[in-house]
């Protein structure tokens, strides 16, 4: 296969054309006739859907999903709106709060700035995948014990971030914990208790 083929591995010509049209909503004249016909039959939504969607294989909390999605769907919206995994929170949608923190291939990232389509073949862990059945993850238990939350909305993000923080080796003292947790805003202000929870988990040791 030469480079040029690989480049556009999924899009054929007419699809690309339609794409431009349906997004820019102009230049109807360029639209292939069978699409115009379908549009006349009031099927343009269906067609747009078909043409604008792409295949995605993604493993979330151990379950492989085979999906068809628009490339503009973020990982966060995929989780919350399509997979109904609402544990990952939206606090800003612009990378400015950390509420949407999930693990992708073991690394903590912001799902609101991750395009779902770019996670093809990756393993995602969300807050829903942290506990083993009924048994809470030690970080979850420590958050309860230390009252590391109030309203609870930032909490899944804090916990996912905290678990990664310990795994990365960035939880050696309180100041280091604070620095490496700085990307998780808690408007209720549960910070001191969160630091206590992480410190305890870190000190207990073991693999988490």
């Amino acid at each position: 296969m030469n480079d040029n083929n690989k480049d556009d591995k999924t899009l054929n010509h007419s699809r690309r054309q339609f794409f431009k049209i349906s997004t820019a909503l102009t230049a109807v004249a360029l639209t292939p006739s069978y699409i115009l016909k379908a549009a006349d039959d009031n099927m343009d939504d269906k067609i747009a859907e078909l043409f604008e969607k792409r295949d995605l294989n993604i493993e979330v909390n151990g379950i492989v999903h085979t999906l068809s999605i628009e490339p503009r769907v973020t990982l966060l919206d995929l989780l919350r709106e399509q997979l109904k995994l609402t544990g990952s929170k939206k606090g800003c949608d612009h990378g400015q709060c950390g509420a949407c923190t999930v693990h992708v291939n073991g690394q903590r990232v912001l799902s609101c700035l991750s395009l779902a389509i770019m996670q093809d073949g990756k393993k995602i862990t969300t807050i829903e995948g942290l506990a083993k059945g009924d048994e809470l993850h030690p970080m979850q238990a420590a958050f309860i014990k230390h009252d590391g939350f109030q309203c609870g909305y930032c909490t899944p993000g804090q916990i996912m971030s905290a678990v990664a923080c310990v795994r990365e080796g960035h939880a050696n003292n309180e100041d280091e914990i604070r620095s490496y947790m700085a990307g998780n805003i808690c408007r209720c202000g549960a910070y001191p208790n969160i630091v206590d929870a992480i410190t305890e988990v870190k000190q207990k040791g073991g693999t988490i």
Binding site: T86, T126, E128, F149, G152
Partner: peptide, 8 residues
């Protein structure tokens, strides 16, 4: 607390 920390 349990509902909150598990995302439920």
């Amino acid at each position: 607390g349990k509902d909150i920390v598990t995302g439920k």
